[in-house]
Design a protein around this nucleic acid. Structure first.
Ligand SMILES: [Mn+2]
Ligand SMILES: [Mn+2]
Ligand SMILES: [Zn+2]
Ligand SMILES: [Zn+2]
Lengths: 159, 159
DNA sequence: CAAAAAGATGCAAAAGCTTCCCATTTTATT
DNA sequence: AATAAAATGGGAAGCTTTTGCATCTTTTTG
């Protein structure tokens, strides 16, 4: 329907933001819950608290903003956004998934075992070694999960 | 009580097997469930099916062998073994933990997204880059999780 | 070796997270 | 505006894992 075709929000393959257009492009109707959830994710990690949120966290923030959206809807929508490639899901630990907006650039995580702080990183050497390892074993590499667990600077104090 | 002191099962820091002694050394009583669970884990990956088992798998194998051990006990014992360093727990995916006997040498995993096959590997380059990354961010490195997801050779067929 | 103490087990109930069901509401299409 | 299609909310249900507790085993004591 639109001429030219490429998404305004995408710049040379790197997504720089999301909006209702992305919801529509995913074949989903533009509903209030979807828009609000996207807003929560977009605000996270930009002064609006941590970037990586559990479904429960998203739900709580919606309530704080006065939105009456069901928890089931939050789960459904987050899953749809993951399927649409708008959101990434990670399983850091403890059986709960965490979600973050997909910015298009892959990265891995460093998680503090005490306070839960999350630091993102990306290491070419690690990435390419993984390619090599998958190839050595005849596997195609579709994806990977790398989480480094340790103690952040503030959690290493003697106490 | 034993003279000399070092565990017979350990050879220069690399564990080569486990037995009742290890249960005792962990400060746990040597009970039938614990011995049987250890046997299941020891047999796994040596012709006795896959090496990495979910609690449910361990439980099922116990039933097959005619042992009437409760699932709650399987969970409790596996957790105790992990705490004692006899067993490793991994969260490959799907909310279920998998367990394997700890052989003392660290390794990571390649998991087939179709058939679930697991291949183990260990890459010094990746290990040392992780040390560097943790250090760069002021984190102590306590542990890490690396799982490469892809399709194994048999699951790449055109069909 | 028997008795006492300490610890472990099994079952069922409960938890914690996530998904499913379905009547009702909202969005998109005609 | 009417119709068709899709989404929502709330609660029930599902799954994996943990917990409570009476009973049974293992270990320690005498
Ligand atoms: Mn991230
Ligand atoms: Mn392994
Ligand atoms: Zn910390
Ligand atoms: Zn496969």
């Amino acid at each position: 329907m639109q001429p030219g075709g490429t998404n305004r929000q995408v710049d040379r393959g790197r997504r720089v933001g999301v909006d209702k257009t992305d919801i529509k492009q995913a074949g989903l109707k533009v509903t209030l819950p979807r828009v609000k959830i996207l807003e929560i994710l977009e605000a996270s990690g930009k002064g609006e608290g941590p970037r990586h949120l559990r479904a429960e966290d998203v739900y709580r923030r919606l309530l704080e903003r006065g939105e009456e959206i069901g928890l089931a809807t939050v789960y459904r929508v987050l899953t749809q956004f993951v399927e649409a490639g708008l959101v990434c899901r990670h399983n850091f630990e403890g059986g709960q998934s965490v979600f973050e907006l997909d910015r298009g650039a892959h990265h891995d995580h460093l998680v503090c075992m005490k306070c839960g702080q999350v630091v993102e990183f990306m290491d070419e050497a690690i990435e390419s070694r993984q390619e090599a390892i998958a190839a050595e074993h005849g596997f195609t590499l579709e994806d990977h999960t790398l989480v480094i667990h340790g103690f952040c600077p503030s959690c290493q104090a003697p106490g």
